[in-house]
Structures are given as C-alpha cells and as structure tokens.
Amino acid sequence: MASLTPQVTTPAVPGTAPARPGRPRRPRVWRGVVLLLAAVYFLVPLIASFVFTVKAPDQGFSLDAYGEIFSAEGFAGSLLLSLGLGAATIVIVLLLTLPAVVAVRLGAPRWRPVLEVVCTLPLVVPPITFVAGISTVLRWGPDYLASTPFYQTIIAVQDPGFPIVLVLAYVVLALPFAYRSLDAGLGAIDVRTLSEAARNLGASWPHVLLRVIVPNMRSAMAGASFLTLALVLGEFTIARLLSFQTFPVWIYTISGAHAQVSVAVSVFSLLITWLLLLALSSAGARQRSGS
C-alpha cells in the first residue's frame, strides 16, 4: 500500500477571494479536537517505543539497546541478505516492467488491459495465499520432477544463502507498484513525440529506449525502486513461511531474548522507511520542478 499521494495542489485563483466559512468558530474547534486526538494516537506509540528502548532498569537512561543491534547475532547477515534481495528484485522488476510499459504506450495499446490485470492481481491476492501456493510447488516439485533437470533448479532457488525464490516472489509483489509508478512517469512525458523525434533522427529502438526514454524517466524509476526496496525490507510473511532469515524475520526471532533490541530495531526500521519515502517524494518534487 505504499502509494504516495499525488501532490494535491490548490491553485490560487486571482481575483476570487478565498471562501470564508460562514461560521468560522465551530469548525475550528471540531478540527482542533480531531487533530489533537490523531496526534496523540499516532505519536504516543512512537514516543513510547523510544522510551522503552532507552529505559534501563537501574541507570534510568541508556542507549545500549541501539548499540546491541549491531552486535546481536545475525544482524549483519540478515540485513545484507535483505538488501541483496532488494537489489536483485529492483533490477528484475525494472527489466520486466519498463519495456512492457513503453510498448503498451507506443505500439500495443491492446495489451494494456492484460497488463493492468496482471499488475493488479498481486494486490488482490493476499501474500499468505501466494506463499501457500509457492510452498506447495516447492514441496511437490521434487516428487514429480525428480528425474528432470528442473529438480536441480527447484533445489537451487531455495539456497538459504541467497534464496532466488524470494526474489521471484518479491518481483510479483512489487509489480503493481512498479507498473503504476512507471506508467505515471511515462504519462508525464510525451513518449510518442520523443521517440518519433528520435526515430526521425535515425535512432534504433534500443537506442531510443536507453538514450531517450530512460533518462527522462529517471525519477519514476527511482520511485519504483524505492517502493520495491521498502517492500522487500519489510516483507515478513513469505520469508518466514519459507523459513529464510531475512531482516524482518530476524527482528521477530530475536524478540524473545532481547525485547528492547527488537523494539529498537523497529524504531530504526521506521526511520529507514521514513527516509526512503522522503527521498522518494523529494525526487518526485525535483522532477516536477524540472519539467
């Protein structure tokens, strides 16, 4: 659900006055109450989590929990695994989606509905049902395919060091976000005119894609990549049920022994999400002001 709102701007209309509500007092009170309650509800858990992590039984205040994150067993391994999976997922999802989106805009608009459906289904189907299907395939696969080369493949994709099966699953989960982000990015530039101009100047199709379209889509691609990364760094269901030790699964595993550390990591990961999304929205803003 990582959909950043499109920046909703209210154009100031010269000459018309800002509409003033007839009774200015009542709505203001009502609004204040709503905002105050929201602030309490949303801020208290954040503050409390932080307090929880720095509260030491004897000294009163200590940042040890944050220090322990880095020394805790499995931290580096699981974080690196998640980052690696994220990088692989980003590359594959962009390689699959970008040509398809461009093609649908330029030459094969009849395929758009198909693409829309394919890129909506992963949103409708809950991830846990997806993993139920995947684990069944992985369980049955070896029985039926024992004598074929596919057997080796099935074993290879489950390598705990770098589980390719997770990359494949994450690509499916990331498709809707990548598709939407790239499609919106293409919508903002006039691909047809751009590519026709380039073709007119003698460029080949791969050249058009790499030298003309991709550079103009940089921020849409950055957006798709950020969303994918955020998704992979937070994904728990599939990794846990296929028994791979990714970062979120690691947080869950250590919670029993180190409650404070696991909360500290949670605060930490919220900060990371925040930074990713800020980077994303400022990249979007830069594109808007640039174009």
């Binding site: 010269p14 006055a17 509409a19």
Partner: peptide, 17 residues
C-alpha cells in the same frame, strides 16, 4: 479588469461574501 471587485460585489449579493 481582474481584481476590480466585480465578482466580490456579485458574491455579496448572493450571500457568499
């Protein structure tokens, strides 16, 4: 011209201002 108050006058008559 825009900003001369013509719309405001109308909105005063309609009751929006």
């Amino acid at each position: 011209p825009s900003g001369c108050g013509k719309t405001t006058a109308l909105r005063c008559l309609a009751g929006f201002e």
